[in-house]
Design a protein around this nucleic acid. Sequence first.
DNA 1: ATGCCTGTCTGGGACAGA
Length: 259
Amino acid sequence: MKIATFNVNGITARLPRVVEWLAETGPDVVCLQELKTADDTFPALALQAAGYRAVWHGQKGFNGVAILSCSDDLVEVRRGLPGDPDDTHSRYIEATTHGFVIASIYLPNGNPQPGPKFDYKLAWFQRLAEHVAALFADARPVVLAGDYNVVATDEVGDIYSPRSYLKDALLQPETRSAYRNLLAQGWLDSIHHLHTGKPIYTYWDYFRNRFERDAGLRIDHLLLNGAAAARLESAGVDRFVRAREKPSDHAPAWVALRD
DNA sequence: ATGCCTGTCTGGGACAGA
């Protein structure tokens, strides 16, 4: 069972990259973020032709999350987080498939900080933690996958160098504390667990030759509850996708779990 | 020191992203 997450930075522009990556790597389940398209313009037919069912929560121009599955048992469980009826951003969708509970997460970026966007990020983080606390105890395997917009530490496993990002919302103590508090529920940061201390990034800015210099950040995470962690076999990042023509600024990250 | 690129919606300049 291979479960991947990919911030596509626009599914319309990225569709060729996504379809070829699906064919090459054959994940069973995929969480997508930053669709940047409305519900009625999501390319469900093209993905179906590629062999994947989908549930999605779109938004015109910004945000947007989806879950793809190669199985026809895919069922949407919820869209959006509870706790704020005024939240208009499409950043969370949850589904069941293959006996798993899967959440696709696009946590707010939070820049500039301090300010209302940073406040929104922290509030959203809190709502996420409150919602998934019950999921951790679920007997089914649960995977929370997505772009968390958190660089967990200043260590080289998480960021090439913190110097250029010192004032960035991704590195702030409040952001890191929120992420630690989430992990404290018991979730396993799968890529960190299997690649501790190694630079294994998921995002490289488009400019300043950041990818060519491997000046990246690890901000896309796959968190596992106990039932999923017990089956963890391997994890990685498909960084070759970032090297292609017209790439997203993120690369897909994935976990493989024993059947 | 800085969105330096990129995508989207628009209607070509603005905004968001990290």
